Amino acid sequence: MYKLIACDLDETLLSDDTHVCQRNRDAIMKLQQLGVKFVLATGRGYISVQNTLKELNLAQQENEYVISFNGACISENKNNHVLNFNGLEHQQAQKLYQYGQNYDVCMHVYTKDMVYVYNMDEDERNYMSGRHAYKEIDTDNLDFLKTEDIAKVLYQNTDQEYLHMLAESMGELGDQFDISYSSNRYLEFNKKGVNKGEGLIWLAQQLKIKPEETIAMGDNINDLSMITRAGLGVGMQNSNPAIKPYCDYITEADNNNGGVAEAIEKFVLADRRG
């Protein structure tokens, strides 16, 4: 019997218009009536997912949770209370920021409540619209963030081969981080050992839920850690082909047609009816 579902947002729960389709909303509402936890597990910050929580009637709810920044933060929805935060050291973020200036990338630096973006083009502005609040910067260092908690840093380029080449060329610098890829445009850097899978297991332990009683749903490389750690790993039809062999189930529906609901109906709701 599954008691907790951790679900990615972009290209998984959300349709391409950045909203939750009605089929997904209906299925998640039924989960809530059964007492099954539905937890957003995202690379975004917890502040930036409030509209999605409102669509799911989970905003400002006690005993409901979000795994954000690829697992660097776990928070309770009521008052966005942070339960656990495991971000980058400022020196680590500084090294990544200065290294990235030598390459053809846009960079995002995530604090708890803002994304600072360097070298942003119009395509990235369009992609970020409706997903994140952000501020564009042109500084050559991150000294202005010395007193801020930094969750993660990412590099953006729509050429995935270029991002993989860049990661492979980083040598000892890259070895200091937990590296993942998302949205077919991002190379992401978290503190070593920090990822969605570890976030899922941490939260499950706090709730006294066994790993085998969890489901993880996603579509890309940064979801792989939780897909492989959960009791059931679900990939969307539109998932990056690289993660599909690791999934226990691939939905027939994509993110625009209720792939998340399909999995909920098949593995949770049908079981409860039976």
Rank of each mutant, 00 (worst) to 15 (best):
K3R: 15
T12F: 01
L13Y: 11
L14C: 05
D16C: 03
R23E: 15
D26S: 14
K30D: 12
L31P: 13
Q32Y: 12
G35F: 04
V39M: 09
Y46I: 04
S48I: 04
Q50S: 09
N57I: 08
L58T: 03
E62M: 03
N63T: 04
I74N: 04
N77Q: 11
V82W: 12
N84Q: 11
F85G: 02
H90M: 04
Y99H: 09
Y110K: 00
D113I: 07
V117L: 01
T139N: 09
D143V: 11
L145F: 05
K152E: 05
Q156I: 08
N157M: 00
T158Y: 14
E168G: 13
S183Y: 12
S183M: 07
F189A: 03
N190K: 03
G197L: 14
G199I: 15
Q205T: 15
Q205I: 11
Q206Y: 09
K208S: 11
E212T: 12
E213S: 05
T214Y: 06
I215L: 06
D223A: 00
I227R: 00
T228H: 01
G233T: 08
G235L: 01
G235M: 03
N238F: 07
N240Q: 12
Y246H: 10
Y246T: 00
D248S: 05
A253M: 10
N256M: 07
V260E: 14
K266N: 13
